[in-house]
């Protein structure tokens, strides 16, 4: 499987945009239980950030604090420069939120549901009359705009939820498990839609535990566990740190097996070489070693048949990281 990482999609620029979400030492306790523990999170303008973590890790709690829907116990939050617990209206006027369990007024039509939201946002009648059909049509619900939401499927509701976000024309969109309960095709379309929104310059924060999906769209991810942000960065970054690379290069070559293996092992950045079949070698390396491996095979007098690279997957990072973390805690 060759997975395209988000980092390869966007040119790696060192100059990062303005900080739009920033938390420092953010903590939320429910009685004795700490749901979010001294979280430091920074999200830059225009990026897609993924909050990953198992159930109960504190993702939803974090999101609620970013929106001022729940009061932090301690620590500070800044969203677009505003404090969500003191200036929630300023934050909520600029941030769109797609909750994990999304519901609408079933007896009202799609248009009426959005009209209510438009009025709550203080949009004028004329403005709402323009934006509502546009947003609904963009999400492919133009046909059912005047149908009661009671008749909508889960996927349609999810899209109506996004139409509501578009209506607000937000600077930041926060989505809690947006692809949960969508079929693979719908999920795929949804991820594409996220990339489109990113193209429009909207910053997106999403939480999920569907790692391969997150990997497809997120510029950076943060691994979350027991209320703590364990590690964060681009997928490639995490791969370096957790898997020390995590690239797997499959080389198919004919020649002296021992000689080839030694030649490959001698390359810089190679951690391990396995011979899985008589003429197939798998290199575990820190980066994409294809060209190095090709010349090494040729120089060692071998004949090269095939070369394939498998980029590190978030799944792997996640499972290795949490295995190490729990081993570390155990010993």
């Amino acid at each position: 499987m060759s997975v395209v990482t988000a980092s390869s999609r966007t040119p790696p620029t060192k100059t990062q945009g303005q900080v739009v979400i920033e938390t420092s030492q953010l903590t939320k306790r429910y009685g004795k239980f700490t749901a979010v523990d001294n979280l430091n999170l920074t999200v830059h303008r225009g990026e897609v950030f993924g909050l990953l973590g198992p159930n109960g890790a504190g993702k939803t709690t974090t999101i609620l604090m970013l929106l001022g829907l729940t009061e932090p116990t301690s620590g500070s939050v800044r969203v677009l420069g505003f404090d969500p617990s003191r200036e929630p209206l300023d934050v909520k006027a600029r941030v769109g939120y797609l909750p994990d369990a999304i519901g609408f007024y079933d007896e009202l039509t799609a248009r009426e549901n959005l009209a209510y939201i438009a009025r709550l946002n203080g949009l004028s009648q004329a403005e709402a009359a323009k934006r509502i059909p546009a947003a609904i049509e963009r999400m492919g619900l133009g046909e059912v705009i005047d149908h009661p939401v009671a008749t909508f499927s889960r996927g349609m509701r999810q899209r109506l939820g996004v139409a509501e976000l578009l209506l607000k024309q937000p600077e930041i969109i926060i989505m809690d498990e947006p692809t949960l309960g969508l079929d693979p095709e719908a999920a795929h379309n949804f991820l594409n839609m996220i990339l489109q929104l990113k193209q429009e310059g909207i910053t997106i924060l999403l939480s999920s535990h569907l790692l391969h999906q997150v990997q497809q769209v997120c510029d950076r991810v943060g691994l979350f566990s027991n209320g703590r942000m364990m590690i964060s960065g681009t997928v490639a970054d995490l791969a370096q740190r957790v898997l020390r690379g995590g690239y797997r290069i499959t080389v198919q070559a004919r020649g002296e097996a021992d000689v080839l293996k030694r030649a490959l092992l001698a390359l810089p950045g190679v951690q391990k070489v396995e011979q899985t079949q008589p003429e197939t070698f798998v290199i575990h390396g820190a980066h994409d070693l294809r060209s190095d491996a090709a010349s090494a095979v040729v120089n060692a007098g071998g004949k090269l048949y095939g070369l394939d690279v498998e980029a590190p997957s978030l799944d792997e990072i996640y499972s290795v990281y949490f295995k190490e973390a729990s081993n570390g805690a155990g010993s």
């Binding site: 769109g96 939120y97 079933d106 709550l120």
Partner: peptide
Amino acid sequence: NRRTMSRVLAQPIY
């Protein structure tokens, strides 16, 4: 119960 609460309160109102 209709799960509209968080959506409505995510709008700029108290």
